[in-house]
């Protein structure tokens, strides 16, 4: 990490690749489910990159990395907890909502999709990009950040604004 702080890209890439296993181990110890481990890895790598100046080469790199990974693991667990409280589970939704599989419903859905597509096209470029990356292509924040070159905070804000204006626009039409 000392070399990476001085700007050595190859040492940095090697270090980050070697760090993935420890990050996963720390996240598992914190109780993160297997399918969410990669999210913790991505968020931890982004944090490591942002705060790499706080590492002191005279101290343990593993302890420094493990502290960041543990924190990001807790963040992911909290995020999941919040989502679980808001979301309706499949079985419940299946029982509560009757099927309406007929031609008119199909046509209506197609129209709704078209309206949504048009509404997305009218969004400002930054917001449209956030919706496309995070909503339509279902990329993670970290991936979208790399693809678009924006930071995750900006993406979150753009997505939030985009959803608000889409909601206003579609509610206004109906």
């Amino acid at each position: 990490m000392g070399a990476a702080q001085a700007g050595d890209q190859r040492a940095y890439a090697r270090l980050l690749k070697d760090s993935v296993a420890l990050i996963r181990a720390v996240a598992r110890r914190q109780g993160v489910a297997v399918d969410a481990l990669d999210d913790v890895v991505q968020e931890t790598l982004l944090t490591v990159h942002r705060v790499r100046h706080t590492f002191d080469p005279s101290r343990s790199y593993d302890a420094w990395l493990a502290a960041i990974a543990a924190r990001r693991a807790i963040d992911v667990l909290r995020g999941q907890g919040r989502r679980d409280r808001r979301e309706v589970h499949d079985e419940h939704a299946y029982e509560m909502h009757a099927d309406r599989e007929d031609a008119s419903a199909d046509a209506e859905r197609a129209q709704q999709a078209l309206r949504l597509r048009k509404a997305i096209d009218t969004l400002p470029p930054g917001q449209r990009e956030a919706v496309e990356q995070l909503g339509l292509k279902e990329r993670s924040l970290a991936e979208a950040a790399v693809q678009t070159g924006r930071n995750t905070g900006a993406l979150k804000v753009n997505l939030h604004r985009a959803l608000k204006s889409l909601r206003d626009r579609l509610n206004g039409e109906s």
């Binding site: 980050l16 993935v20 991936e143 790399v146």
Partner: peptide, 15 residues
């Protein structure tokens, strides 16, 4: 996915 991110972070590494 991690490799792509690591490459991207490596590419923008500054001292």
């Amino acid at each position: 996915r991690h490799e792509a991110l690591i490459d991207a972070l490596g590419a923008e590494l500054t001292p």
